[in-house]
Design a protein around this nucleic acid. Structure first.
Lengths: 239, 239
DNA sequence: CGGTTGCTTGATTCGCGTCAAATGCGGTGG
DNA sequence: CCACCGCATTTGACGCGAATCAAGCAACCG
């Protein structure tokens, strides 16, 4: 059930059989959620964290005028609100973008893991550090990259992350969201995202149709987007 | 020596005398560094983490064309690269913006803390989660706020964070950086930052002169910037 | 089928960038 | 003591990238 989360951890360090068991046992139950379901609201008191088993989920903040900024797209194997274990209240929304499947881990279990399994705790901590690294890379996108590079970078990132959990093809991956959703990730409008997608297509870099991203020229796309996957920490080493 | 770090933790949870001792003992030595000194380079193998005792330090990434994006400003009491404990290599630079004083904590000590002091470990983990929360708020700034609101939000954030460690006045705080540095935080140019600072001044919201930010109308500034301090988690509660 | 949602495209506007030059000021050395 | 320099700040003129406004189209669906 939580195989993708295990894959994600094993891409960063070795995981003992015992640690794997502890994780499996900490999962309480799983549940299907429809599209556009808000899973966590800002300020809500939390007593469990949510693991994404299948689907696509985002975290976002909204502004007074109704605009949104999506801060991360979550793929299967990601914890959606592991930071809620210590923050207790989130500063943002967590929402499904497509019908998804999630599982729950009570904070009491996480607390016990933090007492009894230091190495596993460090690995969980690590996953929140990778989230922060993704935030930082998005900061660079919003602050310094052109719209074309932003889109290209997002495509490269999602491809790399989906590869880790076995959900990407060699040159493409599913991305079942609208152009408006993309705009909310990238700090743009949907109209401009549409124009930039056309340019990516016309220049033979990538296409986005029928909820699928096809990367046509990976080499050139990475160069234009200045994509360097180091920040994703996809490297097995003792942590 | 590490009083400000203690203050920072105590603003989020209670810290036992024993935990405080453990922290003090884990500090190896301290050192003065001049302005503009690079403390950590991306990719460099790390074996210790750095705590900022005094001064001002930033983390940034740079682009091929020489532009920079600053991702966080660090105030005394902050760890500069606690995430390096598990990441082992950073994806960005850490650089002093003014003459500063830092202290070092070997990763071996952190590893031991993670084995022997679960609650203290959770508090250290928490500080990295607060860094991530700051990243998220900056994402909203760069993605959705106007230049005026970005500047206002940064001023509000720095004031709140400096208050925690006792370095702010009721309506102002030291900010010894250039307008060009501000621009690199905010995804703007120094020319535009200059114009927007003028507007903040003319509208009676805030001033920035002689390395000092004076907040003239806190109420209105917060409303314009849509600043809500919840994301900084300045609240004592069990973690 | 009428209504909704997402995509596409054109015309226009505007916030911020770019380029350039002037001003101010602390530091330095003759 | 003053000429000079380097750096940060300030201001103006102009240009560009993305937003805004608006309209048309295709697919889906109850």
């Amino acid at each position: 059930m939580i195989e993708k989360a295990i894959l994600k951890l094993k891409a960063r360090d070795t995981l003992s059989a015992e640690e794997e068991d502890v994780l499996r046992e900490a999962i309480q139950r799983s549940e299907d959620v429809p599209s556009d379901r808000i899973l966590v609201r800002p300020g809500e008191e939390l007593s469990q964290s949510i693991l994404l088993l299948d689907g696509l989920v985002c975290r976002y903040k909204d502004m007074r005028n109704g605009e949104r900024q999506i801060m991360e797209l979550h793929v299967p194997g990601d914890f959606l609100d592991l930071h809620g274990f210590l923050l207790k209240r989130l500063d943002h929304h967590v929402m499904s973008l497509v019908p998804s499947r999630v599982a729950f881990m009570p904070h009491a279990r996480l607390e016990r893991i933090s007492r009894e399994h230091p190495h596993l705790t460090r690995l969980l901590w690590l996953t929140t550090l990778i989230d922060a690294a993704i935030h930082r890379e998005w900061l660079v996108s919003l602050g310094r990259r052109t719209a074309l590079a932003r889109l290209g970078h997002l495509f490269c990132e999602m491809h790399a992350r989906l590869c880790v959990v076995g959900l990407a093809a060699p040159n493409g991956f599913p991305l079942p969201i609208t152009q408006a959703d993309l705009a909310e990730c990238l700090g743009l409008t949907s109209v401009h995202v549409n124009r930039v997608l056309r340019r990516l297509r016309e220049e033979g870099l990538a296409t986005f149709r029928d909820s699928w991203v096809e990367i046509l020229d990976s080499e050139r796309l990475r160069r234009i987007a200045e994509f360097d996957p180091d920040y994703l920490q996809i490297e097995r080493r003792p942590r």
